[in-house]
Simulated assay, not measured.
Amino acid sequence: MKFKLRDRVAVVTGAGGGIGRAVAVSLARRGCHLALADISEAGLEQTAGMARALGARVSCHRLDVADATMVRALPQQVNASHGRIDLLVNNAGVALGGSFEQVSEADFDWLMDINFHGVVRMTRAFLPYLHAGDDSRLVNVSSLYGLISPAGQAAYSASKFAVRGFSNALRHELEGSNVGVTVVHPGGVATSIARSARAPAGVPEEEVLRRRALSEKLLRMPADKAGEIIVRGIENRKARILVGMDAKIVSVVERFAPVRYWSLLKKGVQQ
């Protein structure tokens, strides 16, 4: 039986643009009401306008998922606005390029605090509200780099593998309850994540620009298409959603060559 989205309430983090905005619009198209959260108020208002035009009831919440006080306060705010919470989409995230030796401890911790600890904080805060519903779902957005670990992505990949492991364990723990768990692995989706990625201090600008151009070259799928794939997966109660042919191919290669996959894949990635 499908997870019905009409007249339910979804909380979406990172909703000010990219995949978060696309997911929010796809949910609104199906009659789902929305609590949109992002650190960018301007981005939130743009997404809210798109969702309201589709008939959704929308509340906007400025949120930094690294701020534990803001996260703890959010569920009551959402509940006060909507009266129920049925779906949580933990999508907010940041990127950080550079090898492990190039990335400072402070930058590594900054990324983990948002990409992983933010997911854990949000889950801890909202899980009691999800349990209170008749049929609820928790959706955590990992990455292609939560399936494989390329050179130069030690911090980002660590955070996305952590999201994957956390989600899988939580699914097993919640088995038999009213809360289902989905983990999402987007491949190359055309968002601003590469352009907005933090660069390690001391790396020459030309090297930063080269890496950024290479990353952007791999971001091909339109965000609205990715949003539709994710929401269809939520409707179908999928435990894992692979977004894009690149994610599907990488998943197969890693399964059959769990140690050697990088030697097989890196030529295509570095071209």
Rank of each mutant, 00 (worst) to 15 (best):
A92C: 07
T191F: 01
G268M: 13
A37Q: 00
T123M: 09
L87F: 09
P186N: 08
S263I: 05
P258S: 13
S99W: 10
E235W: 06
K267P: 06
C32Y: 00
A95V: 04
P128T: 05
A226V: 11
V163G: 00
P150V: 02
V208W: 04
L54E: 12
Q77C: 09
V181R: 00
R220G: 01
E216T: 02
K2V: 09
T13C: 10
S149R: 11
V189M: 04
L36E: 00
A169F: 02
I249W: 13
G17S: 15
S26C: 11
A22I: 05
A154I: 12
D109G: 06
R198E: 13
V25Q: 00
H131R: 15
V243A: 12
T191M: 03
A48F: 08
S40Q: 10
A223Y: 02
A155H: 05
A223E: 08
A197M: 13
A239C: 08
N140D: 02
R255Q: 15
L87H: 05
R237K: 09
N168R: 14
L219K: 13
T69M: 14
A22F: 07
I230Q: 02
S192P: 07
Q270N: 15
V181L: 04
V12C: 01
S263M: 10
A48R: 14
V179S: 01
R198A: 14
G118W: 00
Q271C: 14
D224I: 04
R211F: 10
R137I: 02
I19Q: 07
E105F: 10
R237S: 05
V252G: 11
T69H: 15
A169H: 04
R57E: 09
A125T: 15
D246S: 14
A24P: 04
G93Y: 02
V94C: 09
G16T: 07
M112Y: 10
H61W: 10
A199W: 03
V141E: 03
K225G: 06
P75W: 04
R62L: 05
A15W: 04
V208H: 02
G97P: 04
S159P: 09
L264D: 07
V243C: 12
Y145Q: 11
R171V: 00
K225S: 08
E45S: 11
M122Q: 06
L219T: 12
G233T: 04
S104T: 14
R195E: 14
T123N: 12
H172G: 11
S263H: 14
W110G: 00
V58L: 06
K160D: 04
S196L: 15
S136M: 03
R84T: 06
A106L: 10
A162Q: 05
V269K: 12
A73H: 09
V11H: 03
K238Y: 09
P204G: 13
L265S: 11
A80D: 15
R124G: 01
C32D: 00
V250K: 03
V250F: 09
R260A: 12
A197L: 09
N79C: 04
Y129S: 06
E205G: 02
V183H: 05
